[in-house]
Amino acid sequence: MQEDYIIQIKDLHKTFHTNNGSIVVLDNINISIKRGEIFGIIGLSGAGKSTLVRCMNLLEKPTSGSVIVDGHDLTSLSESELRLARQSIGMIFQGYNLLMQRTALDNVCFPLEIAGISKMTARMKARQLLETVGLSDKAKAYPAQLSGGQKQRVAIARALATNPKVLLCDEITSALDPTTTQSILALLKDLNQKLGVTIVVITHEMKVIEQICNRVAIIDKSHIEEVGTVDEVFRRPKTAAARKLLYERSEHIEKFTGNGRLLRLVFDGSSTDRPIIAEMVLKCGALVNIAFADTKNIHGKIYGQMLLQLPEDPIAVNRILAYLDAENITYQEETDHDN
């Protein structure tokens, strides 16, 4: 059976022309996003991810290539057809982009007004949506009176007003604190499950991808470097760009470690909440130094990575490696990085 793709991007190129010459922002991008999934696109700033998501509703016109959303090639539509198509592609932004002179309720009514829906019906729908995002008591508040998280909830309600099939999220948690980020992500996941809306998440934060995405694409220097399930890509990154992104934060720590060999363990959720390192030390009778650790417990499973400094004794090292193999923990030896 052929996969049911809701968004297909084929041979997409985007070049910006500036006074200082042309800049290639997206180069030969091919992505297929399945109906109903939460798809993440992660990359450092300047990688082109924001331009890529703007190509998905043609806010940014591709230089060449096609963008097929729900069976329609957006690049071949007339302006009025494109406006209609955009009503089934919701979008949320880092800066919320709410209308500052309208109440929360009227902000949610806004896309319905554009779609030509009667005021009565629009208000009813908007009230429902505000309830869905947990803000029914703030219907009459203006954006200036709301917190960042509340504003983003209004923006989500607004984006959902026209029952879109796709929700594009451009760095929507980057301006929020960790607790608010968690609640917004939980809301998105919930909406994905309840409404079946396909969600595309653009971010530079691994945590966002880990928490809600089914599949992820890694974008670096205008190219898609890797696409796969979050488990696959985060456990065994195939490309240098992916490794750089995933291990970014531990890079500077490595420089401070001594002469011992360094082993990087990757926890992908398959190992359960057990004191693995302590067990390893006891069973192997070998001491290790934890040079770096960034792990978290999600639903009783361990995700993240750890950098161990191994003992000098090669026999002890072998015992440790054997233990890790037996426990099915992914590891790789760190060699000196050139970069």
Binding site: S80, R83, Q87, M91, F93, N97, F110, P111, I114
Partner: peptide, 12 residues
């Protein structure tokens, strides 16, 4: 950004 958001909703 607000203009961009309204364009993304299909505003003429």
């Amino acid at each position: 950004g607000v203009i961009e958001a309204s364009l993304s909703m299909g505003a003429s």
